[in-house]
C-alpha cells in the first residue's frame, strides 16, 4: 500500500516537473532568445505571412521553381512520405512519369542528369529544399516564363548562388537551396 502511495505521488510530481514545468521553462527561454524560430520561422511578404522558411510549398506555375514531388502535396496535416518500397511498381511508375514531366516541363532534351530529388518524394512531404543543380535546370523555363532579359537572368543566377546553402560548418549535410526563398527572390527581380 505504501508503494502504491509513493508511486502515485512521484508520478504526479514528475508529471508536474517534466510535463508542465519543463516545457514551460523551455518555451519561456525559447520565446525570449529565439522568438522567430520558436514560432515557426515565418516568411512575411508585405504584411502577410506567405509561409514558413522551413515548410516547403507546392509550385505549379512555370514562373516558379518547382519543389520536390510530395506524397502529401505539401499539406502538413499530416506530414509524411510515400512509404513505397523500391520494388513497388507504383514508385517505379511515379518516378518514370516525374522524369518525363520534368523534362517536358523544363524543355530539356536529355534523360540523364535529372537530379534525383526531383523524381523521388521526400520523407516529410514538406522538404523545403532542392539541390542547386535542380534549380539551374529549371532556370531556362523561369526565364522564358518571365521574359527575363540578360541582366535579369544574371540577377537570377546571382540569387541562386547567394541562396545556395553550403554544408553547415563546411561538412554537415548537403548543398541545397530553399525553394520558397528562391521564388520570393525571383519575384523581386524587376
Amino acid at each position: 500500500m505504501k508503494t502504491v502511495l509513493i508511486s502515485l505521488k512521484i508520478f504526479l510530481f514528475f508529471t508536474l516537473l517534466t510535463g508542465i514545468v519543463y516545457p514551460l521553462l523551455v518555451t519561456g527561454i525559447a520565446q525570449f532568445v529565439f522568438p522567430a524560430k520558436a514560432n515557426g520561422s515565418f516568411v512575411v511578404k508585405g504584411d502577410k505571412i506567405t509561409g514558413s522558411e522551413l515548410i516547403g510549398q507546392q509550385f505549379n506555375s512555370p514562373a516558379y521553381f518547382s519543389s520536390r514531388p510530395s506524397a502529401v502535396s505539401y499539406n502538413p496535416l499530416p506530414s509524411g512520405g510515400s512509404n513505397y518500397g523500391l520494388t513497388n511498381l507504383k514508385l517505379k511508375k511515379f518516378v518514370d512519369s516525374c522524369k518525363i514531366q520534368f523534362i517536358s516541363f523544363n524543355h530539356l532534351d536529355r534523360m540523364a542528369g535529372i537530379p534525383s530529388e526531383m523524381v523521388f518524394m521526400s520523407a516529410s512531404g514538406l522538404d523545403p529544399h532542392i539541390s542547386p543543380e535542380a534549380a539551374l535546370m529549371q532556370l531556362g523555363r523561369i526565364i522564358k516564363a518571365r521574359n527575363f532579359n540578360a541582366a535579369q537572368e544574371q540577377k537570377l543566377r546571382q540569387c541562386i548562388r547567394e541562396l545556395t546553402e553550403a554544408p553547415q560548418f563546411l561538412c554537415l549535410g548537403e548543398e541545397r537551396i530553399n525553394v520558397l526563398l528562391l521564388n520570393l527572390a525571383t519575384d523581386k527581380i524587376q
Binding site: 518524394m121 521526400s122 520523407a123 548537403e174
Partner: peptide, 12 residues
C-alpha cells in the same frame, strides 16, 4: 539515380 525516395534534401 541517387535513391532519394523518402529522404530529405538537406540530409542526403
Amino acid at each position: 539515380l541517387r535513391l532519394m525516395e523518402g529522404k530529405e534534401t538537406r540530409f542526403g
